[in-house]
């Protein structure tokens, strides 16, 4: 898309912030002047380990690595902060996060589930006049760049006659994939920037994506035989990839689940500068003004 078109659209959308402010939604004043900084991630071609579970010949197989082209997009430089999230809560548009009361430091919001992240994106879009959404797993990988981990597990030779070989190997690899030593929530920026200039990938906060968990059956030649999506479970990217039910705010280990879970759950958003997204948001905001909601 030509840049002048985006600029025109963004300008138009930004202009819409003013009526909302005039309508008396006090927090929008703060946000309109303090919209999260974004970084442009240019179109990139990735070797991408596809999320989900794969069965080949009825035996669990390593994720296939596909070459994917991820179109350019803008993503938040930082994870969504606890302070911004608290504004959404006080606007009654988000449920309170499960993280214990924060100290007023500039920390990322944690203790949020997938639904919280989506609710925040919708509220933040209305409040800022820009359409925001969760990144897909591919976008998260492109943004994370050299810090992208994907699945932490190898495609080592498992034994088709002995499923325990894969279980034990995976268990040992998960045990070896140490979590960050310090579980305390850090101020944003603590883990530094990656080559894209984006902060804190691969720290102790894992990030929700919009990508659904799926189970794919592959034929002997690797062709997809069948695929079942389960959008009740979403992909999180971070120090290693994780799959979590959309309502979970805190990953826990124990019982039958023997994996190494993420330490904290948070998110960052993509600013969707597509004309369609802007048009959709403009319509939502017009409706809100018309109905006074």
């Amino acid at each position: 898309m030509p840049h002048h078109l985006i600029d025109a659209l963004v300008g138009a959308a930004a202009a819409l912030v003013l009526p909302a402010t005039a309508a008396g939604i006090a927090h929008n004043v703060t946000l309109a002047s303090d919209i999260a900084a974004t970084v442009e991630v240019r179109t990139v071609s990735l070797e991408f380990p596809v999320p989900g579970e794969f069965l080949k010949d009825a035996i669990p197989a390593a994720s296939p690595v596909e070459k994917v082209n991820v179109g350019g997009f803008r993503i938040m430089k930082q994870q969504v902060g606890a302070a911004a999230y608290a504004l959404c809560v006080s606007d009654s548009a988000c449920e309170p996060a499960d993280s214990a009361g924060h100290t007023g430091e500039d920390v990322p919001v944690t203790g949020v589930n997938y639904r919280d992240a989506v609710a925040f994106a919708e509220w933040y879009s209305r409040a800022t006049g820009y359409p925001w959404r969760l990144p897909t797993a591919e976008e998260a990988a492109a943004a994370a760049g050299e810090r992208f981990a994907g699945d932490a597990f190898s495609a080592a030779a498992d034994d088709p006659a002995n499923p325990a070989v894969a279980w034990l190997r995976r268990y040992r690899e998960e045990a070896a994939a140490k979590r960050p030593a310090d579980p305390a929530i850090k101020v944003r920026g603590y883990y530094g920037v990656n080559a894209n200039g984006i902060e804190d990938f691969g720290g102790n906060v894992w990030e929700w994506t919009s990508t659904c968990y799926s189970r794919t059956t592959l034929a002997k030649d690797g062709a997809v035989e069948s695929r079942t999506d389960n959008c009740g479970v979403r992909v999180l990217e971070g120090l290693h990839r994780a799959y979590m039910s959309g309502f979970v705010r805190d990953g826990k280990s124990g019982g039958c689940s023997v994996g190494t879970p993420p330490q904290h759950l948070g998110f960052r958003l993509v600013r969707d500068d597509s004309p369609l997204a802007h048009a959709r948001l403009a319509a939502v905001r017009a409706w809100e003004r018309a109905t006074g909601s």
Partner: peptide
């Protein structure tokens, strides 16, 4: 049987 057993 081989495998990962949870003892709880």
């Amino acid at each position: 049987q081989p495998g990962v057993y949870a003892y709880v």
